[in-house]
């Protein structure tokens, strides 16, 4: 289930100058929302959400942020990488009239989710927002699915300036969704939670990010206050009833040493 596999990168797609999707020809059998731990056994190991997953291949979409990802961006198709997983909880796939809201480079896992939801016959609306055009990814993929798709940037690259939460607010007030799935930066998801609190009966699930080391539920680095649930096992997808109880959500996370770092 979580055995390590070392295989060649099948192909790399440049989504924007700082975001790439790495594909592997491997039947991972991951569920939407799950993640892998990826390493070249030389420059560390990090968790990445799965953005595409079919029987013959899967992909992870990665933003160049620090040392680890910079090293990864040096790799080419044919280079070997090692991964373990898929790990963690997954989106429930519940709902018939569904709103997906994504932010920046956290949007791609919603693409895999979206395809699974369409496969089971749900009606899906997608909102994809980012700071700039350089952080807005998967537009073409979503557009090719033939569903209601809205994109927006803070900078107003497509006319209107704003966030995915602004669009979600309008959609929620004009539609009768029965499920909302969200994946974005913590403060964007915090704004989404505030918005969703005005729709008490509406179920939702968020995809979270925390510093992970072991990914198998033993090191305790990614536990979420006050529940103590491990984001690598009980997460990274958490349901609304859990999200409502999280006191650290939108406030702080713990770094590699376990020290609290507050969101700004």
């Amino acid at each position: 289930m979580s055995r390590r596999n070392t295989i060649a990168i099948a192909r790399i797609v440049e989504e924007t100058p700082t975001i790439r999707t790495f594909y592997f020809d491997y039947d991972l059998q991951a569920k939407p929302g799950q993640f892998i731990m990826l390493t070249d056994l030389a420059n560390g190991e990090k968790p990445f959400s799965i953005s595409e997953c079919e029987s013959d291949q899967f992909g992870v979409t990665i933003k160049k942020l620090g040392k680890f990802t910079s090293n990864l961006f040096e790799k080419q198709a044919g280079d070997l990488l090692s991964f373990r997983g898929a790990y963690g909880s997954s989106f429930s796939l519940k709902g018939n009239n569904i709103l997906l809201t994504g932010g920046g480079y956290a949007t791609p896992p919603l693409y895999y989710l979206c395809k699974e939801l369409l496969r089971k016959g749900a009606q899906v609306t997608v909102v994809n927002g980012a700071r700039t055009r350089d952080d807005l990814v998967f537009c073409e993929r979503f557009e090719n699915l033939g569903l209601e798709y809205k994109k927006i940037t803070d900078a107003g690259c497509f006319g209107r300036a704003g966030t995915s939460v602004d669009i979600a607010r309008e959609l929620l007030s004009n539609n009768d969704y029965d499920m909302v799935y969200v994946s974005g930066p913590e403060l964007m998801m915090k704004a989404m939670r505030e918005l969703l609190q005005s729709y008490p009966g509406l179920n939702y699930e968020f995809l979270f990010e925390r510093y992970m080391k072991c990914a198998i539920g033993i090191c305790g680095n990614c536990t979420m206050d006050p529940l103590g649930i491990r984001l690598c096992v009980e997460g990274p997808v958490l349901a609304g009833h859990q999200v409502e109880k999280l006191t650290e959500f939108g406030e702080y996370h713990r770094n590699a040493a376990g020290k609290k770092e507050y969101f700004k």
């Binding site: 536990t223 979420m224 206050d225 006050p226 529940l227 103590g228």
Partner: peptide, 15 residues
């Protein structure tokens, strides 16, 4: 070394 990093992790184990 196991789980005992955070107060909530400790709580989860006890529960």
């Amino acid at each position: 070394g196991i789980m005992g990093m955070t107060w909530s992790g400790m709580r989860y184990v006890i529960e």
